[in-house]
Each structure stands twice: as C-alpha cells, then as structure tokens.
Design a protein around this nucleic acid. Sequence first.
DNA 1: CAAAATGTTGAACATGAGTTCAAACGACGA
DNA 2: TCGTCGTTTGAACTCATGTTCAACATTTTG
Lengths: 221, 221
Amino acid sequence: MSSNDDRTTAARIRDAAVGYVGEHGWDRTTSRQIAAEAGVPVGLVNYHFGSKDGLRQACDDWVIAQLAEDKGLILGAGPLPRMDTYIDDHPELRPITEYIAQCMRSGGQVAEHFFERMVELTRDMMALAADGGTFRRYDDPYAAAVILVAYGAGASLFGDTIARLLGGTNLLDTDTYNRYVRTTVEDYTHPLIIDERYLDALDTQDVPPAPAEGDFRKENQ
Amino acid sequence: MSSNDDRTTAARIRDAAVGYVGEHGWDRTTSRQIAAEAGVPVGLVNYHFGSKDGLRQACDDWVIAQLAEDKGLILGAGPLPRMDTYIDDHPELRPITEYIAQCMRSGGQVAEHFFERMVELTRDMMALAADGGTFRRYDDPYAAAVILVAYGAGASLFGDTIARLLGGTNLLDTDTYNRYVRTTVEDYTHPLIIDERYLDALDTQDVPPAPAEGDFRKENQ
DNA sequence: CAAAATGTTGAACATGAGTTCAAACGACGA
DNA sequence: TCGTCGTTTGAACTCATGTTCAACATTTTG
C-alpha cells in the first residue's frame, strides 16, 4: 500500500473504478485496468466485491450516496456547463460527475436516480424563482421540471458537439460560452412560438400539430 | 439463403447489424449475433467486411447515406416522439432510427453527422416559421437551432424516463403524451424567465448568473 | 506468544469474442 | 465437360477478460 493514503483497499479500488469508468464507461473498462489504476493485483477486486458486477453495484451505491450527501454535487454534475465552477472549487468531486455523465449515456439506476434528484431540485428552484417573480409559474410545474431537466441533459451530453458547431473546442471557452449562454437566456426569456393558437388549440380540442425543434408544418401561414 | 430476399449477402449482414445494434448498441453486439441474425456463418462477416470495425464503418456509411437520401428520415429519427407517426408509415426506416439513437448515446461520426443535419433542418424550418409569423426570429438563429436540437436530443434520449416520471410507461400513451406536449408547447409559447434583466445584463456587461434548469441564485427577490 | 481470521498475491482456468483458413460449393465461360 | 473464380462453410486459433485458487503475509484474537 502506498504511504499517504488512509483509504481502505476496497475504497481505493472503488475510487479507481469510478475514475476509470468516468473516462471510458463500464463497457470499455476491464477489471485489470481498474486493478492497475488502484495499484493492486486483479484478484483483490473480486475478493472485496465478489465480481465485476458487485464492484459496479458498489460504485453505483456509493455515487448515489454522495448525491444524497452533497447538495452541491447535483448542481456540479448538472447540465449547465457554468456549474463547472462549483466543481473547480471541489476537484475531488469531478470523478463522480464524470461517472454520472457516463451513466446518463448508458442508462441504469444511477441515471434514473440522478435524473429524479435533478427534477426535484429543479422543481424546488423553479418554485422559489416563481415566488421571487423571476420565473413564470407553470400550469404543471412538475412536468415542466422534468422537461427542463431532459433538455439540460441533452445540452450536457452534447456539450462538445455544441461547442464545435458554435465555433469553439470547449463550451467553456469565453467566446463559445458567451454565444451559448446568450442564446440560452434569450431562449428562456422570449418565447419561441409567438402564435398563441397552438397553445390555445391544446386547451380546447385534441392534440394539434405541435411546432417544435426539427419539425414544423406551415399550416397557419 | 432464404427464398424471397433479393438483397445481397453483404446487404443482409449489414441490415442485420443495423437492426441488432439498434437494439443493443455496438458494445453489446458480437459478430456471431449479427451472423445469426443474418442467417449466415460467422466467417462471412469478415469475408465481406474485413473485420468487425469494417462492418461498423459500412453500417455508419450506409446510415449516413440514408440520411442524405430520405429527408423524412431525419424527421422520423428526430427528438419529438410525435414524429414516430412518420416512422409508423415507413416501418422499414425504424431500424435506422434506432441505430441512430444508439449512436447518439455512444458518440461517433453518425452522431455528429445526424446532429449537424438536424441543426441544418431545424434552422431552415425556424426561418420558415419566422417568415410565416409563427416563430420568433432569433438574434443568432444558428446557435438557437443548435441548442434546440440538443434539447430535443435530451428529450429523445430520456424519453422513457420522462414517461415514467409523468406517470406512464410510454411517452406515446395518450395521457402521458398530452401532459408532455402541453408543457412543451407552453414552454415554447410563454417565457420561463419573466425578468428581462437577465437578458439585458448579457447585452451590457459580462456574463451574469444565468438562471436556468437546476440552478438559480435568488439575487433579485 | 500462538492461533485464527483477515487480507494479499500472482498464477492458472474457463469462457467468449474476433479472426483466420482450408475445404467445399456453385455459377459461368472456354 | 472442365477449370476458374467468387462465395460459403464450419472448425480452429489467438487473445483478452472474468473468475478461481492455493500459497503467503498481516492483523486480530484468545
């Protein structure tokens, strides 16, 4: 065991797994890579966790426990890249956020759990902001929070692609970031749909065509 | 070889791969599973495509070619579940849309290509809708399209989770779907942020806190 | 201190997956 | 009919991976 490390061997293996999986995802991670990362022989992984699945379960449980413990973490792992400033102040949390990001891609209980926590938090914050007169109050606040979280997850998962199309290499580069935030805030401040009849139609009759991203039928021109 | 199938063997292997990968993803797909799906022995896969990577490249190229060929496909594979009606009318396209969905999770050139095409189409449709007076005209239409596509991708990737949190099992169930569409249209018709100072601040000084999903600092209460 | 329990090591094993290959098959032209 | 070339077949090979295990080391317990 290395000198300055008061973690137990099992904890070091778990941390190594979270870190490596955060970079490559579970499907591309082998027991030997995790063992090497932790500086232990392969056999120890199964001694402490029974199997690779056991290790995954332990990692999932631990990450979920961290989510419950540290309220800031769920913000730091959240969709808006600006939240990385929180992670910058708490670098020890970065592996967890990356692990969560991997889970959001491949699904599973961590993804579900994180999504749900994110929805709760978003709903509460929207309610607060509505109390303060900054946010609008939705007819269905919970559904609004769910959709907002899904949108944010999309922005987060495709952060690199967004940055590239916006002319940068990293969404946190100043120019790229400003362009992104400017449009995002504009998006949430001024309505995309200026023809109220779409919403009215939903309240009166059954589902009409809903104009939204990537699809629009010019019926009312 | 089965009787009524005028596809070449290579085409049948490719189609089998697209179909199987669409269900399970490349990481969880083996050459033997693809061969079994296509009803051919394993050796034929590498005879026709050189390697598993070669097959993947062929699948990617083919899917991208389909995207260029069939304009409706990019709508059918798009984020809004309502678009599945298009796929219902063209069931032969469903495997492609599911293949694309898998690629959106794991990244790669198909994901990038699809995202870009989606942005182009969204930008054009937003321009059309703006001409028709239905959509607002953005200061930065391209960035708006990029962000809208990312949002839509999030809604698409987390469709099952959204449905579950909205009380259903499938986003296309009438009740769940109505709740989803109602909130989505409301989202795009009425602004979330009703305090214009956030947007104003962006236009005058450097980046202020941007209130959005999952994060809000009560500064202006 | 002795013994037992716990932790650690590295090699060996079994399985599964990608790949290779020699032989068989079938269509087509000489 | 024969030979050739492009396919097809199924087995064998190689390597990586998850797992097991017997031996060794360390810590805890009586």
